[in-house]
């Protein structure tokens, strides 16, 4: 369980993280989603006591991170897989974590097996690793203490499709055993596939949060009819906000039940009626962050 309460971080006049509150629950994968520079990494650094918040607090398993007696045994953290000494071998990096946490040496072998690093790879210096290998090593370091909570910043970066699938299964399994998983990403499809709960952040503020199923439902309804104009008028007469979607259908925030009833009342034959998540989370992501993202309004 991770509880973030009103976390705020200001750098001079710039507010990087603005009043962010959310909860990551045990048994669930919480996806922390946002465009680059939205404040995801700063929020995560504050959660693990690497950055002091300007105000607000974060607790992990009921305690401030800095108050956990041996945090590596309770919280696995991977913030940046590239933040390693290039001249150190993968095995030595793991060994440092194993020794710091007071774990048996046998754990090293278990971890390299778990993340599929061969002996030859583990004995190479990290400067020669690909980003994908660094991510695997970082995951191994985060998991070595068998922690209950995982906090991972962009863990899928640099992984090949098979690696992404492996990571997804690993995190799913961890949550299914009752663990808490918080992972950040700007890879929308990845979050959509794995997350149970989604916290979406843009320019330091939470834009939307909730269970994935609820958020998808909130994306509205797409409806299509032979007589589109009549349908448009009927929905507007009910005070529903209607806009044309790009492929010649209508999009409304009302749910499908209401739209169906309106059409029935007006005697209009529908050709399609569905929840608007055909384009997936990406559509919602772009929509919700349109006002705050750097690239300006998305097409």
């Amino acid at each position: 369980m991770i509880i973030v309460e009103r976390l705020t971080k200001k750098y001079g006049g710039f507010t990087a993280v603005d009043d962010v509150s959310f909860v990551a629950r045990p048994g669930r994968v919480t996806g922390f989603l946002g465009p680059n520079g939205a404040g995801k990494s700063t929020t995560m650094r504050m959660m693990v006591a690497l950055t002091a918040p300007t105000s607000g607090s974060a607790t992990v398993l009921g305690r401030r991170f800095a108050d956990l007696p041996n945090p590596g045994l309770e919280v696995g953290v991977l913030l940046d897989a590239s933040a390693q000494h290039a001249g150190r071998t993968g095995r030595e990096i793991l060994a440092i974590a194993q020794q710091t946490l007071g774990l048996p040496v046998a754990r090293l072998r278990e971890m390299t097996d778990l993340v599929s690093l061969t002996d030859a790879e583990a004995d190479r210096r990290v400067g020669n690793y690909s980003l994908g290998m660094r991510q695997r090593l970082g995951i191994a370091t985060a998991l070595i203490g068998d922690p209950e909570v995982l906090i991972l910043d962009e863990p899928a970066n640099g992984l090949d499709p098979a690696g992404i699938r492996w990571m997804r299964d690993l995190l799913r399994g961890h949550a299914d055993r009752g663990g808490t998983v918080l992972l950040s990403s700007h890879l929308l499809n990845e979050i959509e596939v794995i997350a149970d709960d989604i916290v979406m952040i843009g320019n330091g503020r939470i834009v939307s949060q909730g269970a994935k199923t609820d958020l998808l439902h909130a994306a509205g309804t797409v409806v299509r009819a032979e007589d589109l104009n009549a349908l448009d008028r009927a929905l507007a007469a009910w005070g529903l906000e209607v806009r044309p979607s790009e492929d010649g259908a209508l999009h409304t925030d009302a749910d499908a039940v209401l739209v169906g009833k309106v059409a029935l009342n007006a005697g209009i034959a529908l050709t399609e009626l569905r929840a608007a998540h055909g384009a997936g989370l990406e559509e919602m992501f772009l929509e919700l962050t349109a006002g705050t993202q750097r690239e300006g309004a998305a097409a």
């Binding site: 669930r28 007696p69 041996n70 055993r177």
Partner: peptide, 26 residues
């Protein structure tokens, strides 16, 4: 439904902070 499922893992000794001697070795 957000029922808290207890985290399942083998029991282990109580968590203690790393002693300074260990940190020096590291």
């Amino acid at each position: 439904t957000t029922t808290a499922i207890p985290y399942v893992r083998p029991p282990r000794p109580a968590v203690h902070p790393a002693p300074l001697s260990r940190l020096i070795r590291v």
